[in-house]
């Protein structure tokens, strides 16, 4: 290919490349540098990272985040899989598109609003407490909002919809003949699921689970609105460094640690994320 032709190629790709370098790579580098020059200190130091291991509340934010995110991921997959299965195989073909659209309709609410609407349900005088007390099931309202359970509920609500979409797509792209063949060879419904359908949809589930993990562990809105400040998750801790303390070094260090955790999660999942397909 001639030089002039290649120049056109470079001209067309360089705006996007430049944009990414200036507004993504450079800020990232800036963040890394800032994390090495802690507040109130001259010169370079790893103090911002050190506090992560010395300050127990920092460490706890990470374990909280991991616990919540893992619970959310597992619960969402467990709830969404049977639901997607029902949509894909039990609902009559001509109703499926509508059933699926309905299942993800609240997906289109604004993310902030979705968390807020759970607050309406879970608040001390909210729908659940009001119903249960008026029915006499509860004597007094129980605390549902500002708990870890509230955070998990809000997250699961969002990710059940997301995973239903991905798992449904996965189930539908399997040839219906796999199930027929298994049944023909004597497999019961359960055997067909365990030996054939589950292994074949596992790559898709892993992709969905990984996506859930990454999005949930980096999210600030849901834990802040629903979990409150009783226990902090990593994104809340990071925002707190910026907002209340103006401590960019800590915030940067915590962000990079969070990224490292996601990278580890990726490496753990990697062997499933690019499984061979025929």
């Amino acid at each position: 290919m001639s030089a002039s032709v290649n120049r056109i190629g470079w001209a067309s790709v360089s705006p996007a490349l430049l944009w990414t370098l200036v507004f993504f790579a450079a800020p990232f580098a800036a963040m890394a540098l800032v994390s090495l020059s802690p507040k109130g200190e001259d010169g370079w130091s790893l103090a911002a990272y050190g506090q992560f291991f010395t300050n127990p509340s920092y460490w706890r934010a990470l374990t909280n985040s991991l616990e919540v995110t893992l619970a959310v991921t597992v619960l969402s997959v467990l709830l969404a899989y049977p639901f997607a299965w029902i949509l894909a195989f039990l609902v009559p073909e001509r109703w499926q598109r509508l059933a699926l659209m309905l299942a993800v309709l609240p997906f289109w609410t604004s993310y902030v609003v979705r968390s807020y609407s759970w607050l309406l349900v879970l608040a001390e005088k909210g729908v659940i407490n009001a119903s249960l007390t008026s029915l006499g099931i509860l004597g007094e309202p129980v605390q549902l909002a500002n708990t870890r359970m509230a955070t998990v509920t809000g997250f699961v609500h969002f990710f059940v919809m997301l995973l239903t979409l991905t798992i449904y797509a996965n189930l539908k792209q399997l040839s219906p003949n796999y199930r027929k063949a298994a049944a023909d060879l004597g497999a019961s419904g359960l055997q067909s699921f365990v030996h054939v359908i589950l292994p074949l949809t596992l790559p898709g589930i892993m992709v969905g689970a990984f996506l859930t993990f990454v999005l949930a562990i980096g999210d600030y809105i849901t834990p802040q609105i629903l979990g409150g400040n009783n226990e902090l998750l990593m994104p809340q801790l990071i925002m707190m460094q910026i907002g209340r303390r103006g401590d960019f070094a800590s915030a940067s260090a915590l962000s990079l640690i969070l990224m490292a955790v996601v990278t580890v999660a990726y490496l753990v999942c990697a062997r499933w994320l690019k499984i061979e397909r025929t």
Partner: peptide, 25 residues
């Protein structure tokens, strides 16, 4: 180069926002 362009997909919005905040500062 294609990898570089798609890289931001894997980073959470919070971190992208914070990087930009520091950079713009």
């Amino acid at each position: 180069l294609r990898g570089i362009i798609t890289l931001p997909l894997t980073v959470s919005y919070l971190i992208i926002g914070m990087g930009l905040l520091i950079f713009f500062n």
